[in-house]
């Protein structure tokens, strides 16, 4: 079967169609999985609750039921809303998520577009969602929405730079910006000549990993950086006027983005789709790659959501000072040390 997959070479139109379909199926699925596993179940257990119990076996279909519920709701726009912008904004947010999935490699060839500048592309399009958030906040004609959107925009400046700087360490070490290239570099590397587990970059770039995860938290607007949607201050910020499926799209985009960022963190720091004892050339990765990547994504997601469920919220200016006074200097130090060692060793 693996050979069959390897030799499968459809025409361009078909492969494009397949890729589109796969991405549009994967995005809601991953969002549902993360939402179910972490938002409903693990959060409940962490808060000594049971979580949903009724819909499906042990409540596993609860999120599906919620999704259907959202689809049934009326699509309401506020009176003073800029209607066209208001309706398009969730789609802009979702688009940025979809584009992110394009570069995530699930194995050597199971990737929609293996770009040479993959890392660069990811970091560039990740910030596109803020445009959607700004559109949503501005067009809602609500003060809470506007404040939420402006907070999101202000937050962008704080977390985008540390994220880029954190990733540069990995890029220096791997010598490539291709995500697949980084996976290969990790799994074919060796620690002082011992290549037993390859060379996942979390061992050398743990500082980068920490900064990256912190920045991802801010990107996802999750606690402790959920100021744009702070429900006890500005009542869910830019989402406050959305109902029905437009709200569902925000929800999907948030969790799908969480998944894809966990995937990118897994690729950059945990060796991506590869496992140490299987050579990266193996055809088994057509099947094994997605599973391995999924497992690693769940581990990273667990960290992300664990923090989300535990910490209180920062204030906007505290995030700025954290980013500019702590994360960016640390990331710069990380880059310098990495670069020096790269040259010396």
């Amino acid at each position: 079967m693996t050979l069959l997959l390897a030799s499968f070479a459809p025409p361009y139109w078909l492969s494009t169609l397949i890729k589109v379909l796969v991405i549009s199926a994967v995005v809601p699925t991953t969002a549902l999985i993360l939402g179910m596993v972490f938002l409903f179940k693990i959060m409940s257990w962490m808060q000594s609750r049971l979580g949903p119990q009724e819909a499906g076996p042990r409540g596993t279909l609860q999120l599906l039921a919620d999704g259907v519920k959202f689809l049934q709701k009326e699509d309401i726009a506020p009176n003073g809303a800029d209607l066209w912008v208001f309706k398009v904004a969730p789609l802009v947010v979702l688009m940025s998520t979809l584009v992110l999935y394009v570069t995530l490699p699930a194995s050597m060839h199971l990737v929609v577009a293996d770009l040479d500048v993959g890392v660069f592309f990811v970091l560039a399009v990740a910030s596109l969602s803020v445009i959607g958030v700004l559109m949503a906040g501005w067009s809602s004609a609500s003060k809470y929405s506007l404040m939420g959107a402006l907070r999101a925009a202000g937050q962008l400046i704080a977390y985008e730079l540390p994220m880029v700087l954190a990733v540069i360490g990995v890029v220096i070490q791997a010598g490539t910006m291709s995500l697949n290239g980084i996976v290969l570099a990790q799994n074919n590397g060796s620690i002082f000549g011992w290549s037993g587990i390859g060379f996942p970059y979390i061992l050398t770039q743990f500082l980068g990993f920490f900064i990256f995860i912190a920045a991802v938290q801010a990107e996802l607007t999750q606690p402790p950086f959920d100021m744009p949607v702070a429900e006890s201050e500005i009542v869910s910020g830019y989402q406050v006027e959305y109902t029905g499926f437009r709200f569902l799209i925000f929800f999907l985009a948030e969790f799908a983005t969480a998944f894809v960022f966990a995937g990118i963190a897994a690729v950059l720091f945990l060796g991506g789709w590869a496992v140490p004892w299987l050579p990266t050339e193996s055809d088994w990765y057509y099947v094994l790659g997605p599973i391995v990547l999924f497992a690693k994504v769940m581990i990273v997601s667990f960290i992300i959501f664990w923090v989300r469920f535990t910490y209180p919220r920062f204030r906007e200016d505290q995030l700025q000072s954290l980013a500019w006074k702590v994360l960016i200097p640390l990331a710069l130090v990380n880059i310098v040390v990495t670069a020096v060692l790269k040259v010396v060793l």
């Binding site: 606690p223 959920d226 469920f309 535990t310 910490y311």
Partner: peptide, 16 residues
């Protein structure tokens, strides 16, 4: 108070 500052879990512990 934890809930209002964004820390959800504290609220549930308190109710429990």
């Amino acid at each position: 108070f934890g809930l209002q500052l964004g820390g959800m879990t504290a609220g549930f512990y308190a109710f429990r």
